[in-house]
């Protein structure tokens, strides 16, 4: 078990493509960090740099107290779970789990002990004699995890491990990964493009965009106080509504004075909008209901604002008795507004 320190890491590919730019991050011992971002944001590259599968162009990477920049993957004392599991197809489950231990010249009784223990923990002990192709997706996923944990490494690296599973299994495995990580207390770095996975798993969340860290924080910090327009749009579903201040002023809305001067865009989460005025200071907007989208326990209302080409989304519980085309008056609490500056893309207050 160890802490991981990334100091100003850069990755430039041979063709000149800048994949990761100046990433610095301190991962505490036993912490679960989730790297999240859209495809091509450099999150996988960053993970692979930590694993030693990609070279580090510049910067310093420390695992524990060792600088590991130039160490082979095997010497970094990490284990990785791959997106496609990367199980050795010609080996039995037992040998898949034992391979890393055999290469490290563990005595055979120790190998058997560790493999059996891990297999029990992951409930794959009945399949030890099978080949990977005889297993279901979920079972393969468990074998891949087992292979990581028999080694008892300093850190686990997960590269979108759940993206090949169906929705139901994904939720189940997500819960199991979290429980397992809590129980073992192993430092983990987890890459995903799924914001729900990121929010639920992370001790701390790292939002990446274009190879640069946009924000680091606990899931609730990131959700409640997105540091940039990108984070605001990426975390939360449906995405946060962005309304230009100019528009609101033109509509005669009175904006609270606490908003910093450079604010020219305010963000409102779909669930912070309501049809009834809240008790505290509020802001109200008029619009027309374009589309009502029931989603089970809740509904999404798509509302057209007069003189604005972008509809806003509102989330209400249940299915309201409303007609499409109907005029709507919405309210939001002033405290729930997220102020941004459009040019810098940053939060202003």
């Amino acid at each position: 078990m160890a802490s991981i320190h990334l100091d100003n890491l850069h990755k430039v590919y041979a063709g000149g493509v800048q994949a990761v730019t100046g990433v610095s991050l301190d991962i505490k011992d036993g912490e679960m960090i989730v790297l999240v971002g859209p495809s091509g944001c450099g999150k996988s590259t960053l993970l692979r740099m930590v694993a030693g599968l990609e070279t580090i162009t510049s910067g310093t990477l420390k695992i524990g107290d060792r600088v590991v920049n130039n160490l082979e993957p095997a010497e970094r004392d990490i284990a990785m779970v791959f997106q496609n599991y990367a199980l050795y197809p010609h080996m039995t489950v037992f040998n898949n789990l034992a391979y890393g231990l055999k290469n490290r010249k563990f005595p055979s009784n120790e190998i058997t002990r560790r493999v059996t223990e891990a297999a029990k923990m992951l409930e794959i002990d009945a399949f030890l004699d099978r080949k990977p192709r005889q297993l279901s997706g979920g079972q393969r996923q468990r074998v891949a995890m087992g292979r990581a944990l028999v080694r008892e490494p300093a850190a686990f690296l997960f590269d979108e491990p759940l993206s090949n599973l169906d929705a139901k299994l994904r939720v189940q495995m997500r819960v199991e990964i979290k429980q397992l990580q809590r129980r073992l207390g192993t430092t983990s770095l987890y890459v995903t493009h799924d914001q729900l996975e990121a929010l639920t798993l992370a001790d701390r969340l790292v939002v990446l965009n274009g190879g640069v860290i946009e924000q680091v924080g606990t899931p609730m910090e990131v959700y409640n106080k997105p540091a940039s327009l990108f984070v605001a749009g990426f975390i939360g579903s449906p995405a946060m509504n962005m309304i230009p201040v100019e528009y609101l002023q033109a509509q005669g809305a009175t904006l609270p004075e606490i908003l910093p001067d450079e604010t020219d865009l305010v963000g409102i989460r779909p669930d912070e909008l309501s049809l009834n005025p809240p008790s505290d200071a509020s802001l109200s907007v008029k619009g027309t209901l374009m589309l009502l989208e029931p989603a089970g326990a809740e509904s999404h209302l798509y509302i057209h604002l007069e003189g604005s080409d972008q509809p806003i989304v509102m989330r209400v519980s249940g299915v309201p008795q409303m007609q499409e085309g109907q005029a709507i008056q919405m309210y939001t609490s002033v405290a729930a507004l997220h102020p941004f500056n459009k040019a810098s893309g940053r939060r202003t207050g």
Binding site: L53, P73, A74, I78, M80, F82, A86, Y99, G100, R147
Partner: peptide
């Protein structure tokens, strides 16, 4: 698959 080779590299081979 390249990931098999990478997995083996991490596994100390």
């Amino acid at each position: 698959p390249h990931s098999l080779i990478e997995a083996a590299a991490i596994d100390g081979a």
